Amino acid sequence: MSPGPTTPEARPTTPEARPTTPEAMFRVTGFEHAGPDARITMRTGDWLLDDAGVPCSGALGVFLDDAVGHQVFTTRPDDAHASVTSELSIDVALPPPWTGPELVAQGWTTSSTGRGAFTQCRVTDSDGAIVAVVSNWGRFVALPPGVPVWSPDPSTPEPDPALRVSQLLGSRPERTADGAVLRLTGGPELANPMGIVHGGIVACASERTAAATLDDPATWWAASIRVHYLRPTPLSPEVELTASVVHRGRTVTVVRVVGGPLGGRPCTDATITFRTRD
């Protein structure tokens, strides 16, 4: 779940400081509003590659959760409320890699009620090609005491360019007899301003866990990532994501990933659909 980008106070103040927010790690920047629509950007590069050198769709998670989540946030009833993601759907229309140097998401609010909003966005690369379409069911929650109402901060420090997605997450999935598992540990760099795991981090980690079930990951790409956020995911003691294959075909593979604290109730339930690159 993500109520939007982090507050300026949470960001490092020097270029050499290690990024301590999901937005900083995943190169998300450039929040702009023009009327009812929003615009947000993400820088591309080799950091989008996994350990095997294969670009992965899951790296879009923080970028796109922020893009649609920010739209929900702008429709909240008052400053005493924040917004959280309850269901995030990412349909990747163009397999990676994508033309850089940046991707652009333009979002809008499709409908809004007193309880939440349904928002969407479209992502294009630097050639103007459509990379993905995204939708989000978000809901309003009372802002916890001590958590400030955030405002977008355009100054995102550049992380170490040698860090790839698995290093950014801080964990790598392991294949098991039944699927795969990833144990996620970390601190503020994985959290939203409420102190829970950022919804985009969960989306990325779910896709990475699902990819570990593939026999030849280089021949597949994640064409859709759908995550239900059942309850907030705490940062500690440890978040475990478990993948199981629903269907393994010649051109389509579907994987379910359930996440939550080790030994606790599930917090997220994701379905990742992979398609062959040929």
Rank of each mutant, 00 (worst) to 15 (best):
G146T: 02
L168M: 10
P234V: 09
D153T: 13
I225Y: 09
F118G: 00
V254E: 05
E174F: 00
Q120N: 11
L88M: 00
A191F: 04
G30S: 15
A177S: 13
E23L: 08
M194Q: 10
T233W: 06
I225N: 04
S155L: 10
D278P: 10
L143D: 02
P145Q: 10
A205E: 07
G263Q: 06
L262S: 12
I272Q: 03
E9R: 13
T271N: 00
S224K: 04
V227G: 00
A162F: 05
A34H: 15
H33D: 09
S236M: 11
V141T: 08
P154Y: 03
R139V: 13
L262D: 07
T44F: 08
E174D: 04
W47H: 15
L190N: 04
P232N: 06
R122Q: 11
R175H: 03
V254Y: 02
L182C: 06
P237N: 09
T29K: 13
T124A: 11
A59S: 14
P96A: 11
T44P: 03
E207W: 01
I40E: 07
W47L: 08
A212N: 01
V131Q: 04
G199L: 08
P19L: 11
E9P: 00
T99S: 11
R256Q: 14
E32Y: 02
A191M: 04
G58S: 01
T75Q: 15
D278L: 08
G107W: 03
T110N: 10
M42F: 04
P232R: 08
I272L: 05
V131G: 06
P157V: 15
D51N: 13
G179E: 00
R208D: 01
D127V: 00
P237G: 04
V197W: 07
D51C: 01
A38C: 15
D91L: 11
P261Y: 01
G53I: 06
V131I: 06
A93P: 00
T176N: 00
A210E: 00
V62E: 03
V254Q: 11
R248M: 09
Q106W: 05
G61T: 04
A82G: 15
P157K: 13
P5H: 07
W98K: 10
F73V: 04
T21H: 04
T276H: 09
L64M: 12
Q106R: 15
W221A: 08
G45A: 13
G61R: 05
G263C: 09
P145T: 01
A34T: 13
W108L: 10
A24N: 09
S206A: 14
T7C: 08
V72T: 10
A52Q: 12
L143C: 09
T213L: 00
D66T: 13
I272Y: 05
P217W: 06
A10K: 10
P77C: 11
E189L: 05
T213F: 06
V246E: 14
G260R: 02
G45K: 12
S236R: 14
A105S: 05
P232H: 07
A218V: 14
Q71F: 07
Q120T: 12
Q120C: 08
R265G: 10
R208V: 04
L262R: 14
L88I: 00
I272K: 01
R183L: 05
V197D: 01
A129K: 14
D215N: 11
